[in-house]
């Protein structure tokens, strides 16, 4: 029983990391209508930027994380502005954009490898003893991860429901054409979406790095399909669905450890993804509808 609670706690941590990442991917898909296969590398870049600011430029580790998060957002904007937007403006088929982001993922993962090398590094956050919260065990860092995720999700909710620009993002998710005839500058909203998506990816990469304690250039890419599982479970393009998907995947993968060898954690996420595609494609109706 106590093992179950314990793994529930770990599940919450994983779900928090996953929620940050999944919402970022989902938001960007909703607005632009194609999947970014290089998203995993965005996570990697976020973590490495934070590490670099801290280790090479001696910025305070917490401040490094904030700056790195923002820089990853800027990176998302730049990627859209100089690579993806030109492709979609040229009227290239959807297939091309997918291959472009796929190619970008190889480029970026090797760029990271070239700059930072293949070795494991870790962010200099204080190591702590775990303490119990009810029947669960957390370190202060892990509690911070959960708190960050909750705060960011709330902030996102406010962005999407209370601000003009956030509402415009939702409007574009509904219908780009109608957004345009309403006078919304869709290019600007798209740029902003990439900024938010990039920031979320960067932040997710950083908290994933903290949670794993050490990381190497492939770590974000390896996490990508777990993000996919969460996004698809919640319905592609729906940020709130992505949060729910992250919660389900996070808890399911960690709690499966009670019954299965923990090496099979990721397989649980994969199994859920496959089950979802086979049995409950309703979660994906929106995606099919947007295909036209």
């Amino acid at each position: 029983m106590s093992l179950l609670f314990l793994s529930f706690g770990f599940g919450l941590i994983t779900a928090s990391v996953l929620a940050l990442a999944a919402v970022g991917l989902s938001l960007q898909f909703g607005v632009t209508n194609y999947i970014n296969f290089a998203y995993g590398e965005f996570l990697t870049i976020g973590a490495y930027l934070a590490w670099t600011l801290n280790h090479w430029l001696h910025v305070n580790v917490w401040l490094s994380m904030v700056i790195a998060t923002l820089l990853t957002g800027v990176f998302g904007v730049v990627t859209n502005q100089f690579l993806l937007r030109p492709f979609s403006k040229k009227g290239k088929p959807l297939l091309f954009l997918l291959i472009v982001t796929f190619g970008l993922s190889l480029f970026l993962s090797n760029l990271v490898l070239a700059i930072w090398g293949p070795d494991f590094v870790n962010l200099d956050v204080p190591r702590q003893q775990p303490f119990s919260v009810g029947p669960m065990l957390f370190t202060a860092n892990q509690l911070a991860i959960i708190a960050i995720a909750v705060v960011v999700m709330l902030a996102l909710h406010l962005l999407l429901t209370r601000t003009e620009i956030g509402k415009a993002m939702r409007a574009m998710s509904d219908s780009v054409d109608l957004a345009q005839v309403s006078g919304i500058d869709t290019d600007r909203i798209t740029s902003f979406t990439w900024l938010v998506s990039g920031c979320l990816a960067g932040l997710a990469g950083i908290v994933l790095a903290i949670n794993l304690t050490s990381f190497q250039p492939a770590f974000g890419g390896e996490f990508l399909f777990v993000i996919f599982a969460a996004v698809i479970l919640g319905g592609v393009g729906s940020p709130y669905g992505a949060i729910l998907g992250a919660l389900v995947i996070g808890l399911a993968t960690e709690m499966s450890g009670v019954f299965l060898d923990s090496a099979y954690k990721n397989d649980v996420a994969f199994a859920l993804l496959v089950l979802m595609l086979l049995l409950r494609p309703q979660g994906l109706i929106r995606m099919a509808g947007k295909a036209a």
Binding site: K167, R170, A171, S173, D174, S175, D177, L178, A179, V181
Partner: peptide, 10 residues
């Protein structure tokens, strides 16, 4: 427009 004239999720 005739068909899609509102943002349905808003």
């Amino acid at each position: 427009p005739q068909v899609i004239n509102v943002f349905t999720s808003m």
